[in-house]
Design a protein around this nucleic acid. Structure first.
Lengths: 225, 225
DNA sequence: CCGTAACCTGAATCGCCTTTCAGGTTTACT
DNA sequence: AGTAAACCTGAAAGGCGATTCAGGTTACGG
């Protein structure tokens, strides 16, 4: 049975294991990730693992939970400083892609959760989507976003980010120097195209795109109740 | 070493194995799927498997290939009978969701390919996306779709379908009677909302004249899917 | 400096899975 | 019917990884 560490040393060891697990799961996948590999990566003995975790599944769930918390934090943090909803959307997506570039583990691990831990998978997606839904609802009240079902739109946005991220962050990243700070993000043109797509989909008046210049003349009127 | 069947019986046996593999991979995942389970599901002896496949990885690749071919066929078939591009988009998405509802194996298997067979994963996505790109380019020429990078839009569309399908077909399906003909599709309201989203994202800007704008102004730069 | 609780370790056990192969069965063809 | 090729089978070898556990090490209050 797993236990909670009771001293500073124990806390450190547990954290090392968690970090090592993220690394190993991301690089070889759940299946190929053996407890031995995880403990080796963490630099601790094999048996130590079972002091803090019940098994592979348990530590996997915790890794997913942790990644989810971190990516949402990155996104809301970035969005907070934005003025309009569209700026927030922009900042959120940028943060998402940046996080993906810096932690490819996110994608690689989430995709495996389908079978390893379906509950964790759903929690991951629904938590992020809920963030979108809240934002969209608020933007609808202020007239920045047209009348529509925010839930459907939120899942659509999630899907766009997911696949664009996969295509231009994960796939383009290969063969890149694995220096933590120097990972390529989504190319600027692609990002702009994507935001155009999104802005038109959400815009109150069909066919018009609000200027992408931050605080330019964009009065608050356009209410479409 | 695996071999190609030389008689009708052999062909049947090989097909049974392939179908059984799809079922088993979808229900328990690649990792939990043992050769024993596959051969039992197929109703053949254990050793028979190795007459036609080199191993688990090999048959997995072939299952992915097969599913990919079938889903694309379903989509293009449905889209063919449509008049405008938007109708085609609509028909294609409907076919995609219907296929997903009838073959949940598609999602469940593809998601595992990330580690099991990255090449197969990429092939799957890029093939579908290429279909979109062709359709979008044609629609741009006829002015039905605005000027934009069709590649980015295609991946966005793919992402929308992917997550909406996951949320409303796969997740809602649970606990449903597994009768092959009676699987729930995406609810009509959700489908409509999604199409609204897509149509607005792709719609031409009212002011511009489609045929007069040189559509070759933005040549495709090094997209190498 | 001592004692104890917490912590760490890795060899050994156990169980499951892949893959092989020698021998039996079916099919295609004359 | 007869024969060769194709096909099928499942016991058994060989390997790998999860988990346990008895014994050693470290931290720290008194």
């Amino acid at each position: 049975m797993s236990a909670v560490p009771r001293t500073a040393r124990g806390t450190r060891t547990r954290a090392k294991l968690l970090e090592a697990a993220e690394t190993v799961f991301a690089s070889v996948g759940y299946h190929e990730a053996s407890i031995v590999k995880i403990t080796e990566e963490a630099g601790v003995g094999l048996g130590t693992f079972y002091l803090y975790f019940d098994g592979k599944q348990t530590i996997f769930d915790e890794v997913v939970e942790d990644l989810n918390r971190r990516v949402r934090h990155a996104m809301t943090d970035a969005a907070r400083s934005a003025g309009t909803r569209l700026e927030a959307e922009r900042a959120g997506f940028r943060a998402f892609f940046r996080f993906t570039a810096q932690h490819p583990a996110l994608y690689r691990i989430i995709r495996q959760a389908e079978f390893v831990s379906p509950g964790a998978l759903r929690l991951h997606y629904t938590r992020i989507v809920n963030g979108y839904i809240e934002g969209l609802k608020a933007a609808q009240l202020s007239g920045e976003v047209r009348e529509m079902d925010p839930t459907v739109a939120a899942w659509a946005l999630m899907g766009i980010g997911e696949l664009i991220g996969m295509r231009w962050v994960l796939w383009d990243e290969e063969g890149t120097d694995p220096v933590p700070g120097a990972r390529p993000d989504v190319p600027e043109e692609v990002f702009e195209e994507m935001m155009q797509f999104i802005e038109r989909a959400l815009a109150p008046t069909p066919g018009t795109t609000p200027s992408s210049t931050p605080s330019a003349a964009r009065p608050e009127e356009g209410k479409t109740p």
